[in-house]
Computed example of a mutant assay.
Amino acid sequence: MSDYRYYFCTDEAGASLGLDLLDRVFEDEGLPVATMEIDEDRKIWEVSIYAPGEPDETLRQRIAACVAADFPDAEIQLETFAETDWIAKSLEGLKPVRAGRFMVHGAHDRSAVRPHDLAIELEAGQAFGTGHHGTTAGCLEMIEIVMRAHPSGPCGVNPVLDLGTGSGVLAIAAAMLGPVQVLATDIDPVATRVARGNVRHNHAAAQVHCVTATGFHSTAFRDAGPFGLIIANILARPLMRMAPDIRRNLAPGGSVILSGILASQRWQVLAAFNGQGMRHVQTLWRNGWVTIHLK
């Protein structure tokens, strides 16, 4: 079995438009959309959708139809990859990442941990969240700010919900900061399994409970909540759709940390949560992405 991508070439403005067009259609299917500059001198960019398995002509036709109005001359091209653990390969060269007092690292970088670091050790897995992406690093920094600023200390936000946990790194971070119970959920059972392994590896299993759950339909939310802190590092549009459910599962006076949001999408997300009676407290900006704290 191979992994593959469909892509087309455009300029920088076209790449931004293409990313938005494809993201609207394919984000709920879990197909990553990406842009990349491939020729700086000629100002050529690529817009890509990555997919697992063998190439699918139906997917190519859907992509072509999605961009046809704005890119009538786009040639949808195909690139296939040999079966490779891309996450493991990419992590080989990654250096430790610091966000506030947190340091996220692999086993090969244990020697870089300083005495007062809150060190989270992750290895290659099949779930998002190594700390190297601006959204994950922003969330780590914001979690520390919010939990330490609570009048009752970190335990004042108990219990915590990590919605869309991925690797489990944010749930682990919350557990490291204080004696809180954390519900870590993901729609992907592979992510849940990876998160559970990382939680055990970082000695947080007594505090973090990992569950596979779609939306807020699982009884796990009712059993564990309402939550003093909800962390959701997903994508802007799903976050806006879930705003009413997030508000309903938040304890009175609780905090929400949102990320996975492009800077250009910030006002839309704020409007959705303002409509639920929540107010903006702080925004952190990292590499074109934002992390938002609301109450």
Rank of each mutant, 00 (worst) to 15 (best):
G178D: 13
V113T: 08
M142K: 07
M147N: 05
G153T: 11
G156K: 06
H132I: 10
G178Q: 09
G134A: 15
L163C: 07
A124K: 07
H132P: 10
E123L: 11
R148G: 00
M147K: 05
G178F: 06
V146L: 06
A171D: 07
A127W: 10
I145D: 15
M142S: 13
A112F: 07
V182G: 02
I172H: 01
R114P: 04
A171I: 00
V182P: 00
R110S: 14
G134Y: 05
V157H: 07
R114V: 03
P115D: 10
E144F: 06
A124F: 11
G129R: 01
S152N: 14
V160S: 05
P115C: 02
N158E: 13
V180Y: 03
A137W: 04
R110F: 11
L118Q: 14
P179A: 12
H116L: 13
I143V: 15
N158T: 06
G164W: 00
S111L: 14
V113G: 05
G164I: 00
M147D: 06
D162I: 07
V146K: 01
L183D: 01
L163D: 03
G134H: 07
G153R: 13
L183Y: 00
A174G: 06
R114T: 08
P115L: 01
L122Q: 09
L122R: 10
L118C: 14
A184K: 02
E121F: 02
V157C: 13
A184N: 08
G164P: 03
E123F: 01
A124N: 07
T130K: 00
G138Q: 06
A124Q: 02
V180M: 03
C155T: 12
E121A: 11
C139F: 06
V113M: 05
V160C: 08
V182R: 00
G131S: 10
A112H: 02
S167W: 01
D162T: 08
L183V: 01
H150A: 02
H150R: 05
F128N: 10
V182Q: 00
G153F: 13
V180T: 02
H116S: 14
G131W: 03
T135F: 05
E123A: 13
Q181D: 14
V182I: 02
P115V: 05
G156M: 09
G153L: 14
E121K: 13
E123S: 13
S111I: 10
M176K: 15
A127V: 08
V113N: 05
Q126L: 15
P159L: 10
A124W: 04
T136G: 12
S111H: 15
E144A: 11
M147P: 06
M147Y: 02
P159N: 10
G125I: 00
I143R: 04
A149F: 04
A119D: 12
